[in-house]
């Protein structure tokens, strides 16, 4: 499948858009008309209609080149978005292998990987990268393996180390995050980095999720969907830059909701890594503006209901307070009150 990579931006003039095909493949995060936190994990196996974001284990889409350009800009301004504690080197190589193999297998027109023992040859055509290196020898790459490969893969990446019956955030590449700081969270355990999340601790979500993850098996990745909202299609909604993007939240008016307000979905996948026994946590971010969302009638109806009835704690935590009323009002025009079909896919 040949992807037409868009030339677009996620900052300043915000030229990011979804093509109609990309709208249909959006991983819409609501399987019913209401939302609350739960241990929503399922096997990460190919699923969905042809072309859906669930079709391949590591999804590449038309935004790939522009997203990688945006990541490079973020890293230039703030190198702390990439961190790896010294004991994570084996996990870095595990991650490089997983991402290279997955991308090359699913998109052979764009990526190729050939191996001659430990001598590997990686070609990334969209980004014009041709690299021969020795697997396991960091001196043969221009930078650490995790940084090298995550500058060439969409989504944020955390590698968590497993010890003492807990998971520890000991490495990551995080430039497209929904308001949390890798630099601050590095070294924390599962409960600590989830500390700021409301309600979920109290209803036992994190305890059960951790138990599940500690038993995650190699070759049996799992996925879950998480979501929030963003004003303008900005990938870098980091707390580091909150004073730069925060003012956008006050710019929403009834007239510009359709264009400015975006649903931000994270397709998260979790992979047990073979050599290090660490877990790779991939947080792939998809943005869709309200005008695009309502071109799928089921999604317009459903998102109106979800947003209207969202628990107050979640409204506050996700930072929706200022613009939720205008957005619910705008969406109400697309909700005729008809029942919706179960599941996340378009009708």
């Amino acid at each position: 499948m040949n992807i037409n990579f868009r030339n677009e931006t996620f900052r300043d003039d915000y030229t990011f858009r979804n093509s109609p095909e990309t709208i249909r493949r959006f991983p819409f995060p609501f399987h019913e008309d209401k939302y609350m936190y739960s241990v929503n994990m399922e096997p990460h196996v190919p699923a969905g209609p042809a072309g859906h974001a669930y079709n391949n284990p590591i999804d590449v889409d038309e935004h790939y080149v522009a997203e990688m350009r945006d990541r490079a800009l973020v890293l230039k301004e703030d190198p702390l978005r990439y961190q790896a504690l010294p004991h994570m080197m084996a996990a870095q190589w595990d991650t490089l292998e997983l991402l290279m193999e997955s991308q090359a297998a699913a998109y052979p027109e764009h990526f190729s990987l050939t191996k001659d023992g430990d001598r590997w040859h990686w070609v990334n055509r969209p980004l014009g990268i041709d690299q021969t290196f020795t697997f396991g020898d960091a001196s043969t790459l221009p930078m650490e393996p995790l940084e090298f490969i995550t500058r060439q893969a969409q989504g944020d990446f955390c590698i968590v180390d497993q010890r003492d019956g807990n998971l520890w955030m000991d490495a990551g590449m995080v430039t497209t995050q929904a308001d949390w700081s890798l630099d601050f969270d590095v070294g924390m355990n599962f409960f600590e980095w989830h500390g700021p999340v409301p309600l979920a601790h109290e209803i036992g979500v994190f305890e059960r999720a951790l138990k599940f993850l500690l038993n995650l098996q190699q070759g049996k990745p799992v996925r879950r969907l998480n979501w929030t909202m963003t004003i303008n299609p900005r990938l870098d909604t980091s707390p580091e830059n909150y004073h730069k993007w925060g003012p956008d939240r006050a710019t929403v008016t009834p007239e510009n909701v359709g264009d400015k307000v975006h649903l931000r979905c994270e397709l998260q996948s979790l992979w047990r890594l073979p050599r290090s026994n660490a877990i790779l946590f991939v947080i792939r971010c998809y943005l869709i503006k309200m005008e695009e969302l309502v071109t799928i009638p089921k999604w317009g109806r459903r998102f109106h209901r979800v947003l209207r009835d969202l628990p107050p704690e979640l409204i506050d935590y996700k930072g929706l307070t200022r613009y939720r009323p205008a957005t619910v009002e705008w969406l109400s025009k697309f909700d005729d009150g008809k029942p919706t079909t179960p599941g996340i896919y378009p009708d």
Binding site: S181, F184, D185, V186, G187, M188, P239, Y242, H243, G246, P247, R249, A250, R322
Partner: peptide, 15 residues
């Protein structure tokens, strides 16, 4: 954050 040995401060009037 134990690694930093500090609490987190976030701009209060960013919006």
């Amino acid at each position: 954050s134990r690694r930093i040995g500090a609490f987190q401060g976030v701009n209060i009037d960013a919006e």
